[in-house]
Structure formats: C-alpha cells, structure tokens
C-alpha cells in the first residue's frame, strides 16, 4: 500500500460521488421529497378551506377504513371506501388479464413478421401514445356511448332494439383502460418474443408436444420476463388510473385515483388524500412483491 495508491483510490471515490450526484439530486427532489411531504401531510389535520393545519392527527389513517358516526362518535367500517379499493384492484387485475390476452397474440404476430414490416407494426402500436390521454378516452366514449358508433351500428344491424348501457359501468372503464394500456403490454412482450429462438418450437413438436403444450411448456416459461414486465407496466398505472374511470365510469364507478382527487378537491381533506395516496403506494408494492415472487417460483416447475 503506497500513498499514491491511496490517493488514486480517494480520487476514484470522489469521482464516483461526483458522477452519481445528479441522480441523487433528482431522486431527492423528484421522488423521495414529494413522497415525504405526502407522508407528513397524512399525519396532520385538514384545514377548513383545503391545505393542512400543523396539528398531529391519526384521523386520516383511521378514515381510510373507518367512518366516525356524527352522532355517537363510534367508528364503523367504511363500506364505500372498501368498495372503491376492491373495484380498483379488480379492474386493474382484469385490465392486466385482458391486455395480456390481446397483447400476446399481437406481440407474437409482430415478432414473427419480416424485420422490415416489424418496425411498421411497432410504430402502429405506439401511435395512440401520440394523442393526449383525455382525447383518447373521449374517443372511446364516443364509440361506446348510447348514441355512439357501436350502439348505432348494432341497432342498424337489428341485433338490438335499444342501446346497450356500456358507458358509466365497470365494463366501460375496463374497455377504456385495456385500450389505453395495451401498448405497455405489447412492447415488453414483443421484446421477449423477439429474443425467443423459434427453433425451440420445432424441438418441442419433435418431442411429441402438442401446440398447446409447446405454448405452455416452452414459449410461456421462456418469455415470462416479458409477461412479468408487461403485467407490472399495466397493473400499476391501472391501479392509479384517474382520467379513464372519471370519463367512462361516471361519478359512481370511482377508482382510488378519483377518490384521492375528491379529497384534495371538493372534500377538502388533504390528510385523507395523502393517507390514501400512501395506501395506494403500499398496495402497489405488496402486489409487486407477490407477483415477482410468484413469477420467479413458477419458472422452475419441478423445483
């Protein structure tokens, strides 16, 4: 150990810190900082016209699951809140399943095209991203509303006599979210399928596997990283979706995102909104944990 070596090492350490500083600053101000503010706000008392008063209170956290009866001051389970949580998780899960069911064949189709047309197909998949989310959602609304394209067409065909009520139901929210998040499923699936060695299909067929078993025993296990990535990319934003349930679900079919907005808006209960945001974050983290663990376990069926 010479002094020179020590000096070099010290310089390296200094350089390393200097290089990660931008990332650290960004993380502090863009991620950890705001999160910390939300966390602190969730333990304060709501101000009369919004904002917060700096008085410590657990009411917001209790308010997530319970409501205080105005008359006898007892706590009751907040059914409405639980319904919203349950609907959010259910719709997000179904959105993930639907986007996978549509996205997998789509990604497979694109990945098996000749390289030149592949770029075009991928480009087509990403086109909806170029349009504002709100406009896309209203476009869906235009298709499925009672006087919209779909109902008019079905009535014209004579399949139905009266328009089907789709808009302002959970189904409408599902259709909207599946449409909005489909590219997020297709792209990682495409990346995984693109890397898949198609010669393995022949090996599977050669070893007496039917088409279904080749899919289940060869293709799906190998492209699983893409399935995991796509599912996470769809499930997480679905859970916090705001615009889609607002426009297509109407006032009744709220999801967590709308509920949080309600607290910061009309309800003027910022601490409850903050506590709900933290809850959403925790649900996402728990869901991810379960999913990633289940996915890595599943990769070795005999293990």
């Amino acid at each position: 150990m010479s002094a020179a070596e020590d000096a070099v090492r010290a310089a390296n350490t200094r350089n390393a810190w200097a290089l990660v500083t931008p990332a650290l600053i960004l993380l502090t101000f863009a991620a950890s900082g705001p999160l910390l503010i939300v966390l602190v706000y969730s333990f304060l008392t709501p101000g009369q016209y919004g904002n917060v008063e700096w008085i410590f209170s657990l009411d917001a956290w209790i308010g997530i699951l319970f409501t205080k009866d105005i008359f006898d001051e007892t706590y009751k389970l907040a059914d409405a809140h639980l319904t919203i949580f349950w609907r959010s998780v259910k719709l997000s899960f179904l959105t993930t399943v639907i986007t996978f069911a549509i996205g997998f064949p789509t990604a497979w189709f694109i990945a098996t095209r000749p390289p030149r047309s592949r770029a075009l197909w991928l480009f087509l998949i990403t086109i909806p991203f170029w349009t504002n989310l709100l406009i896309r959602t209203f476009a869906i609304n235009e298709v499925i509303r009672n006087e919209g394209l779909l109902n008019t067409f079905l009535i014209w065909l004579g399949v139905i006599e009266r328009p089907i009520q789709i808009v302002y139901t959970d189904v409408a929210v599902l259709i909207g979210m599946a449409y909005v998040y489909l590219p997020l499923m297709v792209l990682p699936l495409f990346a995984a399928i693109d890397r898949f060695d198609m010669r393995l299909l022949e090996a599977g067929y050669d070893l007496y596997a039917s088409r279904w078993r080749v899919l289940r025993r060869v293709i799906l296990p190998i492209v699983k990283p893409g399935i995991v990535a796509g599912s996470i990319l769809v499930f997480v934003p679905s859970l916090g979706a705001y615009v889609t349930p607002r426009v297509l679900g109407g006032g009744k079919n709220m999801m967590i995102g709308n509920f949080i907005e309600l607290q910061f808006g009309q309800a003027r209960n910022w601490p409850l909104g903050a506590a709900l945001s933290m809850t959403l974050l925790m649900i996402v983290m728990v869901a991810l944990l379960f999913y990633v663990r289940a996915a890595s376990k599943g990769s070795n069926p005999h293990g």
Partner: peptide
C-alpha cells in the same frame, strides 16, 4: 404432424430448452 411421428431430431443448433435443466431436457419427450 411432427409430434405424431415416432421420429426424433438432433438439431444443428441443438435447440435445447434454456429454461429447463439437463435432466428436464432429456425427460421432455
């Protein structure tokens, strides 16, 4: 179809299943 023929192939690229162990590959058929 290939999966109905009692014929097996050793591929030029081997085409071994990367997600399975050696034993699982051998037992696959």
């Amino acid at each position: 179809p290939p999966n109905k023929r009692p014929v097996n192939t050793v591929f030029q690229s081997y085409a071994l299943f990367p997600h399975l162990t050696v034993a699982e590959n051998v037992g696959f058929g």
